[in-house]
């Protein structure tokens, strides 16, 4: 059979393809629908948080920070409850990372504040002595891209029925509505309102001035995102 295959490239290629495609079908398909159901208490990202997530991705924060807490005592002691599949239901893409040069950030919103992040992103080694994390000073001047975040919200609502402007069940039995702007101007206004809340806890004068002008620096969006990780 193999000698025959080696003389018939087409059938050879078909045989190879069947061999390699098989595993993917068996491993990936069966749990596909089940794995993407959101957990109660998991809400979609707001416009500003999503813009912050884009800043996180733009700077490859995931190259050094994981967002996956494994079910070991040492990890739950350090980072909080281990990760559950439904918590990632609105994560496109997933940001688990593959290397922990710095600590896990899956629940960083539980134990770090806006103030802490502001100082840390400016000069990490002043906050954590001997930290090898570089400073991310440009985030204080670059502006966050709210328009793209809004486009992404529209896309996921349209194609993946992500529940924006709809009540989402919370752990305490209440519901929460994550708003998405009806128009682009509306989305920018929503993001700015959220940014003002974050910036109120910040000290950087340039950031405060930018917010007063109606602009949102990347750092504000990033901190909004980090604070949402719980």
């Amino acid at each position: 059979m193999f000698h025959w295959l080696e003389k018939h490239p087409f059938f050879f290629a078909v045989a190879v393809f069947v061999m390699i495609a098989f595993a993917g079908l068996v491993e990936i398909l069966p749990n596909f629908a089940q794995a993407s159901r959101p957990l109660i208490g998991t809400a979609p990202y707001s416009t500003l948080e999503l813009a912050g997530r884009h800043v996180y991705i733009k700077n490859s924060c995931n190259a050094c920070h994981s967002q996956l807490i494994r079910p070991f005592k040492s990890e739950t002691d350090r980072y909080g409850h281990y990760s559950r599949s439904g918590e990632y239901a609105y994560d496109r893409p997933f940001l688990w990372g593959s290397k922990r040069t710095g600590p896990d950030l899956m629940r960083v919103g539980n134990y770090r504040t806006t103030d802490w992040h502001e100082n840390h992103m400016k000069a990490p080694s002043k906050i954590v002595l001997d930290s090898i994390m570089p400073a991310f000073t440009w985030m204080f001047t670059n502006l966050a891209d709210i328009n793209t975040a809004y486009a992404e919200q529209l896309t996921v609502a349209q194609f993946f029925t992500v529940p924006y402007n709809q009540p989402v069940p919370m752990k305490d039995g209440s519901t929460k509505v994550v708003k998405m702007g009806a128009t682009l101007a509306d989305a920018n206004a929503l993001a700015l309102a959220e940014a003002k809340v974050v910036a109120a806890d910040m000290k950087d004068q340039n950031v405060k001035d930018a917010i007063a002008r109606g602009e949102i620096p990347e750092i504000v969006a990033l901190i909004a995102y980090l604070n949402s990780l719980k």
Binding site: S36, Y88, Y90, D91, P93, D145, A151, L154, T183
Partner: peptide, 30 residues
């Protein structure tokens, strides 16, 4: 994401090259 359309039929916001993964969370990782 340029395909994302809002309630009044507007689309094409933001960076044209940006996209969003077809898979979410655990599936995306897998």
């Amino acid at each position: 994401t340029i395909l994302g359309t809002n309630g009044i039929g507007e689309a094409g916001f933001g960076n044209w090259w940006h996209s969003v993964s077809m898979y979410a969370g655990t599936n995306d990782a897998l």
